[in-house]
Design a protein around this nucleic acid. Structure first.
Lengths: 143, 143
DNA sequence: TTATCTGCAAAATCTTTGCACTTGG
DNA sequence: CCAAGTGCAAAGATTTTGCAGATAA
C-alpha cells in the first residue's frame, strides 16, 4: 500500500510535516532499495551522491520520523547497526532468512502467524500488533 | 539441557578454555536470571556486587565466548543494547512478547515452526538452524 | 611454566543533542 | 513570516582493542 512516493508524502502532510528536498531524497532511496535492509550509513552514502550537503543527522531524524509514521520498520540482524525496511501491507507475511556463514539476508513469504496471535490474546491477554520472525542457518550458496 | 553450572563449565573445558572466578560469577548470574534478558551492563552491575574488581571488558569477552560455545544467545529488542539469554533445548520453542507501551518482555512457548523450516529447505534451499520470533503489541496490564 | 585471561585506558562505532542558520508552506 | 527542518560539532552510549601484568592448569 505505502510503497510509492506520493503515498508517503501524503502521510507526512497529514501530520503537518514538511516535504523537504532532503526527505524526498531519503524516501526515494528507500523506494529504490526495497528489500535491501539499508542501514542509516548506507542511506547516507547514497544520499551524499545526490546532495553532498545532506547530513547524517538528517538521515537519522528522517528515518525516525518515517518509523513514527508507520511506513518504515527498524530491523536488527545482529551486526550492530539498525537497518530499515519500508512497510507495506504484505510485510506482515514477510520474514527473513539470515545466513550465518555469509551474512546474506533473504526474504521469505508465509502467512501462518495470524491464528497464533489470536491464541496469544486468549492465553496471555497480550494483543499482538506486529511480529518479526527470523530464521538463522545456511543459505543455498553456502551449503 | 545446558541449564546448570557444571554443564557450562564442561563445555568450556572441552574447548580448552579456563574456568576463572570471573567466568564463574558471570555464568552464575546468567543462571540466576533465566528469562530476564540481561544486558552486558546489567550483568556487570550484579557482578560488581560480588567482585568489585571485575571489569566490563571481561563481561563482554565472556559473553562472546558463551555465545560462541552455543550456550548463550544474543537478543535485541530495539533499545540499543544487546541482551543475553541462556540456551537450553526448549528455547527453540520459546518466543518473546514485547509490549510497545511499557517495554516489558514476556515469554511465550509454542512449537509450530518445525514444519515450516522443512518447507524453507525445500523451497529456498536454506537450511534453518535457529529462529527468533518476536511479537510486538500491548500487554495485558497496559490494555 | 606458559598460554590464557584480566583490567585499564583508549579507541571505535553508532546514534543523539544543542544551537545557530535556513526554508517550506 | 515563522514554526519546522537542517547541518555541524560535540556529546552519549555501547562495544572493541592494545597491552602489561596476573593466573589457571
Amino acid at each position: 500500500m505505502v510503497d510509492n512516493f506520493d503515498a508517503i508524502c501524503s502521510k507526512l502532510k497529514e501530520e503537518k510535516y514538511k516535504i523537504t528536498p532532503q526527505r524526498e531524497i531519503i524516501i526515494n532511496i528507500l523506494l529504490d532499495n526495497l528489500n535491501k535492509h539499508l542501514s542509516a550509513e548506507e542511506i547516507y552514502d547514497i544520499a551524499k551522491g545526490i546532495n553532498p550537503d545532506l547530513g547524517m543527522t538528517t538521515i537519522y531524524r528522517t528515518l525516525d520520523l518515517l518509523v513514527e509514521l508507520g511506513v518504515l520498520q527498524k530491523l536488527e540482524f545482529g551486526d550492530g547497526r539498525t537497518r530499515y525496511e519500508l512497510q507495506d501491507e504484505d510485510m506482515h507475511h514477510h520474514h527473513h532468512l539470515i545466513c550465518l556463514k555469509c551474512g546474506k539476508v533473504e526474504e521469505f513469504e508465509m502467512d501462518l502467524l495470524e491464528a497464533l496471535e489470536q491464541k496469544i490474546l486468549e492465553k496471555k491477554g497480550f494483543e499482538v500488533m506486529d511480529h518479526k520472525l527470523k530464521f538463522y542457518g545456511t543459505c543455498s550458496e553456502c551449503r
